[in-house]
Each structure stands twice: as C-alpha cells, then as structure tokens.
Amino acid sequence: MQTFIDAYSWLNLRYLLQGLWVTVEVSVISVILSFILGTILGVIRYSEIKYFSAIVGFVIDLIRNLPLLLIIFFTYFGLPNLGFKPPVIAAAIIAMTVFESMMIAEIVRSGIIAIDKGQMEGAQSNGIGYWTALRIVVLPQAMKNMVPALVSQFISLIKDTSLGTIIVLPEMMYHAQIIYGQNTNYIIPMFVALAVLYFIVCYALSLVGKYFERRLA
C-alpha cells in the first residue's frame, strides 16, 4: 500500500500527465491527418481508376501488413537518408499517419461498397457527376456505417502511440518507464495508472463514437 502512495506522489503523477499530453497531442494530429488521407485513399481504391487504384491498393496492403513498431523505427532512422532529419515527435506523427491512413482507407473502401450500388447509379442518372454523387450521396451514408470501425481504429491508434518508446518519444508509456526506473517497486502502481489513464481517454472517444452512431442513425 505504501508503495502505491509513494508511487503516486505529485511529482510522478505530473510527469505521467506530461507524457499523457504528448500521447494526446500525437494522437489528435494523427487522427485528423489519417482520417483525411485515409478517406482520399479509400475513395481512390474504390473508384478503380486504371493503374492508379491498383498501385494505391498495393501500397495500402504493403504498409498495412507491416508492424507499426518497425514503421516508426524506419521512419525515424530511414528518413535522414533522404536528407530529412525529423524530430522524434514529427517522426512519430508521420509514421502513425501513414500507417493509420492505410487502415482507414480499407475501412472507407468497404464502407462505400456496403452502400447499395443502385444509389450511385440513381444519382448519376439524375444528372449528378460521379465524384459529386460519391461526395454528397454515397460517402455520408457510408460514414454512418463506418463509425464503429473507425472508432476502434482510433482507439488502437491512441494506444499504439506507446510504440513510440522505441524512438524515445516522451509519451505516457515512456514516462511511466522512467518513473519505475527510479524505484523498481513502482512498476505495478504505474501499470495501474496507465490502465486508468488510457481507459479514460479511449472511453471518452468511444462515447463520442456512440453519440455519432446514434445521431447519424
């Protein structure tokens, strides 16, 4: 018990919360960027544009199937070879965005497919162009069905930021490791704190998702 009280000193908690702030920062930016990029890629993948869609599909499959840990690692250590040396946070955001976009592209593509084909044809026969029909008729409906899958993916994303410890991203998991480095007995209190803090953030996102699901239904 005393261990828990010592481990949760204000100093340690503050340090952990500083880590949480980086986690949230990286997550929010990556969620926004990967949602935009993922939607675009998903639409391209769906549209079957000659060659282009096939190439995009190939890239999606390749990146989606690699462990994110390695993508983060190679982003940080590979990009300098191309003449760009990103800071740790930028490298983490780039890697997360690239990877999560591919996951989201797959969700978006399947969401569009699940919408009745007749709607697209109906809209087009009413004189609306292909892209406009996609944008104002099909995508909004597809989004509704995609909400649960998207929320699951974003929850994964938030927790996956902890993989950034491999390149010493100062997020919550890394800060927890530094804290229990001071005293090995703090490890269990830190894991409990991690569970609670991640739960709060992810559950909040889950509630937002449920809200959208109801509203769009």
Binding site: L11, N12, Y15, I178, I179, G181, Q182
Partner: peptide, 13 residues
Amino acid sequence: KADTKLFGLMNIK
C-alpha cells in the same frame, strides 16, 4: 541511459 539507476537515470523533477 535514461532508465538505469546509478548509471544513467532521468531526474523527474
């Protein structure tokens, strides 16, 4: 090291 007591450890404060 940033997580190894005695050798290299980050001071939280």
